[in-house]
Design a protein around this nucleic acid. Structure first.
Length: 656
DNA sequence: CTAGGGTTAG
């Protein structure tokens, strides 16, 4: 009669078709054999109550519970179905009744049911009860441990998992392949990210010692773990060591590159996958990361090819793919195509709407972003916290201060969303950029949560624009504590001092950068010519056209000065002579990219440039002049947004 | 009870 739990002797009418009886595994049979008295005195074949079970599966939990109250000897299997049903119905009150009754029937030490209870309470968001069930179960099988690890990891309680994992190792319970995937995930699910990388490496070694080096799930999880720690080299070496890979492993590696500032590697790996691996085909998940990579480098030509590939593979109706595509087109400078892809979506979810809102935002269309935001609400989709980050960001780029304030208020009062640091950072940016620096500082002061680096960074950025030394010093003091290794903050402060010609202070900050061994990010631009992306930096001597570029720039420089262009030499951070400063600003990567575009692009074609930093004031004014002088439209994406130069004016209206 | 993905950010 115990074979009830294995598939080949199942009596079909006891089991509704959709209850996956065929996959009953060996483990459940073993557990059933060791069950305590409760089941052994009540043979399931007799006391099995099919109607409780069928009610459970039909979702009629209340009726099932009624029958349960009259049922003298419910079986382990009946309880299993009841537990699953409570989780499906999301009913905590019923869950508690079932749990109570289960204890009364003497099943409280059944490890199989404990596993199910843990999963159930996890589904019901009762993480404390998950812990309770685990603690009260004396005979903790590896299944019980794994269920706990899974729940805690998904709750972001990584440290707790790792603590328990050590305990498990001390007691001498061997891990299985499931345990390893959970503890690897736990390393990144922890709040104190940095410190757990070491732990992850230890587990890595442990996994190799136990002969799991070819296990595809574990190794893929490991690639992902290193990716999330930003350890691209480790992720790569794990990936390369895998003897067998599938589309998931490839996707994990491509995503790793795309998310860690290595978009070219992401694209290259994708090409390798498509060209050299006939047995593994990319799927929609792969394509999402590939699109992100295209967006990151603003490779419009490449992105269009990918779009074509997506159409050919029939992946063009998958929501995440379309959202990523909208973002890709917008971030590549082609807002129109993004709009078109978006408008062709049959069903739009909140993420799709958010992509469209932020796309309008980075192109400086604040009012349109707000319109789309309203349209989303009218269509019945509730805004998420990210919707507000997107729409507030759009307000900020367009200087829509009152609108932004109103939206922030409505977020809290009408939509019941508690502002996070991201939202505060948006508000500080919105006000600070509009030169309401003290208002911005007041927002920080009134915050009910700890203002993080993003918030102080916003304030410092605004101080840079409006040259406020007092607030800049306050903000940078906090920033140097919060992120001492971020060179950008030191550079901003030095910029502000330089602008005020406080050279000794500039020197002091520069010494700080040096003393801490930091490397400031140097300016870099890229531009796509004929589906190839070229990068330009001010120190680049390898560009074969560099002499031609310099010559063109000098010619333009002289001619434009005659037409009224005044070089803004104050952007140079050093105390130098004027002509020396002019020489420096003429070498800015963006000007090189503009010249490169003028030389290589066909006439009338828009020049599209991407920059890794914020546009400098002189390059901005220079490009405005050129757009008129050379009669060219020039589109520049800096770290934050797009600048669309045409006829001597910029779409940002000099507000960026 | 295993692995990869969309929108935000100074």
């Amino acid at each position: 009669m115990w074979t009830l739990y294995t598939s080949h002797t199942l009596q079909p009418h006891y089991f509704p078709l959709n209850f996956r009886p065929a996959s009953r595994s060996h483990h459940q049979a073993t557990v059933a054999l060791r069950l305590p008295t409760a089941t052994s005195t009540t043979p399931s074949t007799i006391n099995h109550n099919p109607s409780i079970q069928s009610l459970c599966v039909k979702g009629q939990l209340k009726q099932a519970l009624e029958l349960l109250s009259q049922e003298p000897c419910p079986t382990q299997h009946t309880y299993e179905l009841l537990i699953l049903s409570c989780a499906n119905q999301h009913s905590l009150s019923d869950a508690l009744i079932v749990h109570r009754k289960l204890i009364d029937n003497g099943f409280d030490q059944d490890p199989f049911l404990a596993t199910k209870l843990i999963n159930m309470y996890h589904e019901l968001d009762c993480i404390e009860r998950v812990r309770q069930v685990f603690d009260k179960t004396l005979k903790k099988t590896i299944y019980v441990w794994n269920a706990l690890f899974r729940a805690l990891t998904l709750w972001g309680r990584g440290e707790e998992v790792l603590g328990l994992y050590s305990r498990m190792n001390r007691i001498g319970i061997p891990s299985d392949r499931f345990t390893y995937t959970y503890v690897l995930k736990a390393c990144v699910a922890a709040e104190t990210l940095g410190s757990l990388l070491q732990k992850g490496k230890e587990i890595h070694a442990h996994i190799l010692r136990h002969g799991y080096e070819s296990h595809i799930h574990i190794m893929t999880t490991m690639v992902d773990m290193y990716a999330r720690f930003g350890c691209v080299a480790d992720a790569t070496s794990v990936f390369n060591s895998m003897p067998v890979k599938n589309v998931v492993s490839w996707s994990a590696m491509i995503a790793c590159y795309a998310k860690n500032g290595k978009p070219f590697d992401a694209l290259e790996l994708f090409h390798q996958l498509v060209l050299d691996n006939c047995d593994t085909l990319p799927n929609s998940v792969t394509m999402v990361s590939v699109l992100q990579a295209c967006a990151a480098v603003a490779a419009l030509g490449q992105g269009k090819l990918i779009h074509g590939y997506i159409l050919r593979k029939g992946l063009d109706s998958i929501l995440p793919v379309i959202s990523a595509m909208v973002t890709m087109y917008a971030r590549c400078g082609n807002l129109e195509w993004g709009k078109r892809v978006f408008s062709q979506m049959e069903k739009k979810d909140v993420v799709a709407w958010n992509s469209m809102i932020s796309s309008y935002g980075i192109h400086g269309f604040g009012r349109e972003a707000i319109e789309v935001f309203k349209e989303m609400i009218l269509s019945g989709v509730s805004p998420s916290p990210i919707s507000f980050v997107s729409v507030l960001g759009a307000c900020s780029h367009s200087g829509l201060i009152e609108e932004g304030r109103f939206l922030f208020e409505s977020m809290i009062k009408e939509h019941g969303i508690t502002p996070t640091v991201e939202h505060y950072a948006c508000m500080v940016d919105l006000l600070g950029r509009a030169n309401q620096l003290y208002e911005a500082a007041k927002i920080i002061q009134d915050m009910r949560i700890e203002p993080g680096a993003k918030v102080w960074g916003s304030l410092l950025g605004s101080c840079r624009i409006h040259c406020n030394i007092e607030l800049a010093e306050r903000a940078s003091k906090r920033l140097f504590e919060l992120e001492p290794r971020n060179a950008g903050n030191y550079v901003l402060l030095a910029d502000i001092y330089a602008e005020a010609e406080m050279w000794s202070e500039v020197k002091r900050v520069k010494k700080l950068i040096e003393a801490r061994g930091l490397q400031k990010v140097s300016g870099c631009c890229w531009i796509e010519v004929g589906r190839k992306v070229y990068s330009l930096t001010s120190v680049d001597e390898f560009n074969p056209q560099i002499e031609q570029i310099h010559a063109l720039l000098i010619k333009l420089f002289i001619e434009m000065k005659e037409k009224g262009y005044v070089p803004k030499t104050k952007v140079v951070l050093y105390d130098l002579e004027a002509d020396e400063k002019e020489r420096i600003i003429l070498g800015h990567s963006e000007k090189l990219a503009v010249a490169f575009g003028l030389i290589n692009n066909s006439k009338g074609e828009t020049i599209r440039i991407t920059k890794n930093l914020r546009l400098c004031e002189d390059c901005h004014s220079f490009t405005k002049f050129i757009s008129k002088f050379a009669g060219r439209e020039i589109l520049v994406r800096d770290v934050n947004r797009f600048h669309h130069f045409k006829d001597g004016v910029c779409s940002c209206a000099d507000y960026w």
